[in-house]
């Protein structure tokens, strides 16, 4: 097994472990598990054994809910766009537009960073980010401990 393969496997199992601690309560963990199990053949087998049997019906339900969610968001946005026609001075409008664009760009980037972030609205995104950052921190902590421990083991095997 090559180094990159090992690394991939280690990362996958670390991510799955992180996701399984959240017990499918958060969207990012579910998305992470779904991504891992739909990614490749060997990955699928591994994820099923790490997480036990994740029922396919649940996955179907989840995709359905996300679909309806996105539709709802779109309709809301249309409504907001209609409401946005207000009397304002021109420069204020331009400034407002620029600021909004900036925020939108960053929001999109954050969505691409979060697992399963594509189907989240803004409120949900911020909540999930909170949770995800907390878990990532814990993961980094654990992995750092692992690395130091294994290095210690090599240095003095007794």
């Amino acid at each position: 097994m090559s180094l990159s393969e090992r690394k991939k496997a280690i990362k996958l199992s670390a991510d799955l472990a992180m996701a399984s601690t959240r017990n499918k309560a958060t969207r990012w963990s579910r998305a992470l598990i779904a991504n891992a199990s739909s990614d490749g053949n060997s990955n699928k087998v591994l994820t099923e054994h790490v997480l036990g049997s994740s029922s396919p019906s649940q996955r179907v339900r989840k995709s359905f809910t996300t679909y309806s969610h996105s539709v709802r968001i779109r309709s809301c946005r249309n409504i907001l766009r209609r409401n946005r026609v207000v009397h304002r001075t021109k420069d204020r409008v331009v400034a407002c537009f620029a600021a909004k664009k900036l925020v939108q760009k960053r929001t999109r980037r954050l969505k691409s960073l979060l697992p399963g972030g594509k189907s989240m609205d803004d409120v949900c995104l911020v909540e999930e980010t909170l949770d995800y950052i907390q878990s990532l921190r814990a993961q980094v902590e654990v992995m750092r401990c692992l690395v130091t421990a294994s290095e210690l083991m090599i240095l003095n095997p007794s």
Binding site: L3, R6, I10, K11, Q139, M143, R144, V147
Partner: peptide
């Protein structure tokens, strides 16, 4: 944080 995880998993793979 994500890059840190990548790096650490690489390190673990090299150490193991």
């Amino acid at each position: 944080l994500q890059r840190q995880v990548e790096f650490l998993s690489m390190k673990l793979a090299a150490v193991n």
